[in-house]
Design a protein around this nucleic acid. Structure first.
Length: 189
DNA sequence: TTAATGATGGGCT
DNA sequence: GCCCATCATTAAA
């Protein structure tokens, strides 16, 4: 069984680096959310990078009410409603004023699995958190987490976790512009 | 197995 | 009014 460190990540410097580097670095880290006295935890195994010069990014056309957290300093949560029904969870990257972030697209559940099953209304562990909308539903991440600081928040944080054995780079999912960029990262454990 | 489709609502031109 | 960084369900093969 793989070793998973619970040491919390408190250093903002990790998030100030190049967005592509952060997206790759996040693979293997543990995303943790406090939920009604319980803690829900999952290993990040899929991410995507979005930057301000990227036509697929929400930040491409400048600051708006919705995307303003993408322009905040690296380490802030950016949550938005997609297709009227699901939320997507991002962490901002680089310096304040740069509109970039990493979308968390997949987790491997490791704690609070029964609660996640309830939140997702399924008993199938394989489909609990293998998608950006699914993992938000499983961990109960919604707009209340928008603007939260992953460095010092008391209800959402990252832990050291583990290291992927292998990292795949592919094109991003579900976009129409910027398709050629291989800015999606998948970790194998 | 893969492909098509409906649900559902905010953002932005 | 059109476009979405999605997902579950149904239909087709």
């Amino acid at each position: 069984m793989m070793k998973v460190s619970k040491e919390r990540i408190h250093n903002r410097d990790f998030f100030l680096k190049d967005t592509l580097k952060v997206a790759e670095w996040l693979l293997g880290k543990v995303l943790s959310v406090k939920y009604c006295g319980d803690i829900l935890r999952g290993i990040i195994n899929e991410t995507e990078a979005y930057t301000e010069h990227d036509p697929a990014s929400h930040s491409y056309c400048g600051v708006t009410q919705r995307n303003k957290n993408m322009f905040d300093i690296g380490g802030k949560c950016y949550v938005y409603l997609i297709y009227g029904m699901y939320y997507c969870f991002n962490i901002s990257t680089e310096e304040k004023g740069k509109g970039c972030a990493v979308l968390i697209r997949g987790l491997i559940p490791i704690e609070g699995i029964e609660i996640m099953k309830r939140n997702r209304n399924t008993n199938d562990e394989k489909i609990l958190t293998n998608g950006p909308g699914k993992l938000c539903q499983a961990l109960s991440i919604d707009l209340e987490f928008n603007k939260e600081d992953i460095i010092d928040s008391e209800r959402i944080w990252l832990e050291e976790g583990t290291s992927p054995k292998e990292i795949l780079k592919t094109r991003r999912i579900g976009i129409n512009r910027g398709r050629e960029l291989e800015w999606r990262f998948v970790g194998k454990f």
